[in-house]
């Protein structure tokens, strides 16, 4: 497998097949096949834009929820995790090591909406023994992309 293609796409999912071919030295067909295989094998799961939602007036809010969960016979955490991930409000679900079990990132229009979702949907699940909700106040960096306007190119136009 050529991880170069993956690295380029991870950095810029909009990079064209032509540019990927040029940059890696592969042929157009090789790149197309490679990407097809990566998608078929489930290595590439999607292509999304990194958006700074805070720039919108009616920006949404997110919260990271720590869930403590009683693992079930035979299934462990699988069932409950897969149930939780089906909610459209849920953006991310991770099984964690340490003091809690599932990390769930929830998105909503308002603080109230997120709080209501946690109280009504997550906290009431039989397997869930406790929740702790942490609201996101500000995003600085997401998916490797800096969301704060950081360093400018201060190199000037010419140097030898």
């Amino acid at each position: 497998m050529n991880t170069k293609v993956l690295k380029i796409l991870a950095d810029n999912a909009r990079c064209s097949i032509e540019d990927i071919a040029t940059m890696t030295g592969l042929s157009l067909k090789e790149v197309t096949d490679e990407i097809g295989e990566l998608e078929a094998a489930g290595l590439i799961r999607g292509y999304k834009a990194v958006i700074d939602w805070e720039k919108l007036d009616n920006a949404s809010v997110s919260a990271l929820i720590e869930l403590k969960v009683i693992p079930q016979d035979r299934f462990g955490f699988e069932n409950i995790a897969e149930t939780i991930m089906k909610y459209k409000e849920v953006e991310t679900v991770y099984l964690m090591s340490g003091s809690y079990d599932l990390c769930v990132i929830v998105k909503g229009k308002t603080f109230q909406e997120v709080a209501r979702f946690v109280a009504k949907e997550l906290a009431t699940m039989r397997e869930v023994t406790s929740t702790a909700t942490h609201f996101v106040l500000r995003r600085y960096k997401e998916l490797d992309v800096e969301l704060v306007d950081g360093e400018q190119d201060d190199r000037g136009a010419y140097s030898l």
């Binding site: 190199r155 000037g156 136009a157 010419y158 140097s159 030898l160």
Partner: peptide, 17 residues
Amino acid sequence: FFDIAAGMEGVISLGVG
């Protein structure tokens, strides 16, 4: 060239070392 570019807006450079 440095002087000309200094008085311009929106220069896109491939000129540095």
